Each structure stands twice: as structure tokens, then as C-alpha cells.
Simulated assay, not measured.
Amino acid sequence: MRTIFYLFMVFALSGVNTMSLIAQNSYQTDLLADMATSLKLADQLSTLKDGRYNTELFYKKRPLSVTVDGGRVSHIGYLLFSEEQRQLLQVPAVYNFLERYVLSIDLPLKREKSVEKQLAEDNINFTVGEMSDLRKQVGDTTLNLTIDNLSDRRYKVSWYRGDKLTCSVDFPISYDLLHGTEMVENERRIVSAIKRAPLLPADTAKVNPKFLVKTWQPNYFVLPGDTCYTAELSATRYYEKSDDGKYQLLFNRKHPLESLANLLTTVNLKNDFRINVRLKKYDAPDENFEMPLLQFISYFLRQGCTPYFGVISFEGTLAVCELLMRNANEGYCHVMKVTCDVEQLLDKKGNITARLTSYVPTFKIKNLFKEDEN
């Protein structure tokens, strides 16, 4: 009987350890998991349903802001911003960063640097007030607020009580800083994040014909889009007019490059393509994975990325393209070299290959098409 009891306890303890690992994996970043443990709220947070929690949890009698999305804790911080403020100026990474950063300074986390040195290295600059003033504002969401994007390089957040400026801070637009991560963690997590991504519904909004440019080619219309870093890399889309008079995205073998542009920058074309991806890693072996193309593109669009497409080469039936997924609000790009045999466009299915370099800081993107440096 003692032997049976001992075995039961071993399995029970193993179960506890397994559940701890599951709870750890329910956080979007390593830092959030550490913060939950430091707050002694890990058990409580692991049971929360999807949603935002602003008045249920506290630390040192100060209200916390917690977000759970898709069964994962995606934000923990002090409550500095109201829901109305978040809806008015929709830059969630800014709100989450400041709320998380101020709380993390209060927590007894393991630190390799002093708070003062960390602030300096993170290039966080207070023009009015200091970090302690932000702590004093926790729970007070009645202050007026402005958020300025300074040339896509820094955010400046200012608080006012009436007309009086009470605090103003600016900081770099950097994915790592905004999310509390580093490149190794970003690369470790991105594949599972892409595979979890729900399929984004097709955009049902009709294109406005007045914005379409008619070309010399019959039934061929261009919707000009912004360019990024080079004129050859753009968000341009291509359309044709169907028999019932509606404009629809080109998707055929007759216009292979235009069809690829539409295919790789939207989720509006029904297809059965799959994409084989090689993720280039900074300090680890490359990682390969394969999945439906529509789900792959859905992930980047859901993250707020704007897609840009360009052609590197087109020989015979093989097209080699550049696909850039740019998130200007968070300061990064995902850069892909995509290869496709355009004969597959006939059946609207097949295999596409891609080499992905993830989370490249926007200021490091240059010479995508080997342009001469000036």
C-alpha cells in the first residue's frame, strides 16, 4: 500500500510540474511570466478568460491592467490608461509598454543593472517629470493625454491636468523595448505564434473605381499603393472587371507577377497554396516549417503589418520576389525572399517557398534590391 501511495505522489507531483510548464507557456513573453510570478498572481492569471481586466487585480494597493488574448496573458502593468483613451488613440504597444515598464520597476525582479542604468540604456527620456511621477498617476485616468510619433523613430507621451503639463516622456520605437523581449526570444516564439494564428476573414469592402488606373492592357486596372524604401517595393494591387461588372483582384496565369502581388499581400483570394518557410535565426540553427499560405499571411496582417511586394527576378516560370511586412507603429519589418513557380497559378494551389528574417528594426532595412549606397 505504501508503494502504491508513493507512486501516486510521484505522478501527482509530475502533474504539478507539467501544469506549471503549461501556465508558463500561457504568457506572450518571458518577462510577463516572470512578472506574474513576482506578483504572486500566476495561479489567478492562468484561470482568466480572454478580455481586459482593469479593476480586479492590485499590487501595493495600486490597480493593475491585465489582458488575456487567445488564452495567453499578453499584458500585465499598472493601470495608467482608460479604455476610452485606448480607443481614442489606438497604439496599444505604447499603452502596454508604459504600464508594464512602470510596474516592472516596482517588482523585485532579478536585475543585472540598476533602474537608472536601465532607463539610460533603454533611451527613455523625461522632458517633464520623472518615473516616480508616472507611478503617482497609477489609477488616475482623468488626465488629458497626447501621443506623438516623432518621425517613426520615437514616441512622445504627455499628460496634462487641464492646461498644465504634468509629465512628458519619449522613447524609441523599438519592438524589443515595447514588448520587453530580445531577438533570441522573438525568434524562439514566432513560429508557434504564426501557427496559432486564426485565419483572417476576406475583406468584403468593394474597391472604389475612381481610384483605379486603367492601363493600355485590356481589362487591367491598377490600384496604386505606397512604396517602402524603394520604388520597386510597393503596396500596389491589380484588378480586372468581371462579367457582372464588379472589380476583382487579378489571379491568373496570364498576369503572374500581378497575381503573386495580390496573393502575397491579401487574404482575399481563395486558394490552396502552402508555404514552406525557412526562418533565419540570429544565434541558432535555422528553423523550417510549412503551413497554408492564407493562414501565414493572416498572422502578419493581424499583427498590424503593412505588406509590400517587389520582384527580384522572373526567368521562365520561376518568380523570385521580395515580401516585406512592415509594422511602423512598433518599429520592425519581417523580410522575406519568396520563390514560386507561376505555372501553379493555373490550379490556384501548390507550394511556395520563403526565407524569412524576422523583426528587423526598420532603421536597418536598406538596399533590398542592391541599390548603390549614396
Rank of each mutant, 00 (worst) to 15 (best):
E371V: 08
I173C: 03
D148K: 14
N144G: 06
E258Y: 06
K254V: 08
R72W: 00
D283H: 04
E84K: 08
T317Y: 13
K49H: 15
F211R: 08
L119C: 04
R237Q: 13
A33I: 04
F289H: 00
G350M: 05
L88M: 11
T230D: 12
T353P: 01
L145P: 00
N271L: 10
M336Q: 13
S65Y: 05
F221H: 02
V73L: 06
W216R: 06
N288Y: 02
Q118A: 15
S174L: 08
K49A: 15
A193F: 07
L279Q: 12
S14C: 10
I105L: 15
H179Q: 04
N367R: 13
L264S: 05
I105S: 13
E240R: 14
S20V: 15
A202H: 06
Y359W: 13
N144S: 11
T230Q: 11
V222P: 01
D106M: 08
N208S: 14
I147R: 11
G162F: 05
K254A: 07
M325F: 14
Q303D: 01
F369N: 07
F309Q: 01
E130K: 10
F273T: 02
L199V: 13
V94W: 07
F211Q: 02
G70E: 01
A284G: 01
I105W: 13
L103H: 02
P218T: 08
L48R: 12
L107F: 03
